[in-house]
């Protein structure tokens, strides 16, 4: 009974937003690229590189906000690889994204050694200021993430631009017939998702912490992917799922369960995603053209 009471305290619910922040950002990015028909399993690598770049930028300039810009730039740089190789040259999206994840892991540890001469944790860098809301400290990236949810919803569902993105993901050749430049839209959507994943990395390294630790993204890019699917490719749904997964992480760390090991609680997001994907609770249907490169003049 006490455990259950612990599970629903206000601080626990409030802190869930902090755990959920990187998931929200990367999941929103994922909504963009998947709605346009591109799979991005490189969110993980983009987040990791963003986390490193944030610490580097913050450390070099002494200004954590410049670090945030660096993280966005880092996410964009990796997204550019994915966009050029997969959208422009139409190589396999899964293969290239896997390459990006391996690249991110190698590159960040390489930079740790070359720039700082360490193998595990970077020197400390100035972190973002925190803001107190309802007694809970948040860094500004959490607020940005929450604010982005309605903005992304508005762009995708209330603007012609969003309509075009969604039509490209469902039926690219029909969109092409209407004069929409399919590959240009996909290119831009991949870049947006890279920028958001990079920003998610900054939250981990200079938002919640003040250094970079090797492999610090710890699969959050993949949980974000799961949140996006669980939220059925909808920004508000993805936000809700990210919050739920963030909550799962929060209770697994902060609540002591007598009857179930906390390690197993952390597996819940993944199990839920499989269940939803298999259609056991409400079917999750991906955009129709997902994962397929678009060639003009073919069907």
């Amino acid at each position: 009974m006490e455990t259950i009471a612990q599970m629903f305290t206000l601080p626990l619910l409030l802190i869930s937003f902090r755990y959920a922040t990187p998931l929200i950002l990367a999941a929103l990015g994922g909504v963009f690229n998947e709605r346009s028909g591109v799979i991005n399993i490189a969110l993980e690598g983009m987040m990791l590189f963003g986390a490193f770049a944030a610490v580097y930028g913050s450390g070099v300039t002494g200004n954590p906000w410049i670090g945030v810009l660096y993280s966005i730039g880092a996410g964009l740089a990796f997204a550019l690889i994915l966009a050029i190789v997969c959208v422009t040259f139409k190589a396999d999206q899964i293969v290239v994204a896997t390459g990006i994840n391996i690249f991110a892991s190698g590159l960040t540890i390489y930079f740790l050694q070359v720039l700082y001469g360490v193998a595990g944790t970077s020197p400390r860098a100035p972190r973002l200021p925190s803001i107190r809301i309802l007694g809970m400290r948040y860094n500004p990236i959490t607020l940005i993430a929450v604010a982005l949810v309605p903005i992304v919803w508005f762009i995708l569902f209330k603007t012609p631009w969003g309509l075009r993105i969604r039509s490209i993901g469902e039926h690219p050749s029909a969109a092409d017939t209407l004069g929409i430049n399919v590959n240009r839209y996909r290119f831009i959507c991949v870049l947006i998702s890279g920028a958001l994943a990079g920003l998610a990395g900054a939250h981990l390294s200079i938002g919640e912490f003040s250094a970079f630790v090797r492999e610090m993204s710890q699969g959050r890019g993949f949980i974000a992917l799961a949140a996006m699917i669980f939220g059925k490719w909808h920004p508000v749904g993805a936000f809700g799922a990210a919050l739920l997964f963030g909550y799962a992480e929060a209770i697994s760390i902060r609540v002591d369960f007598a009857f179930i090991p906390s390690e197993l609680i952390r597996a819940i997001p993944y199990v839920l995603t499989i269940i939803v994907l298999a259609g056991f609770i409400g079917k999750a249907i991906p955009p129709k053209a997902i994962g397929k490169p678009y060639f003009k003049g073919e069907d």
Binding site: V85, A91, V95, G99, I102, F103, G106, Y110
Partner: peptide
Amino acid sequence: EIVTIIQALVIFFVAGLQML
């Protein structure tokens, strides 16, 4: 880690060359 980087680069180039 240069080795890991080279391994990732191999992936990019194999995937890219396949398209070529």
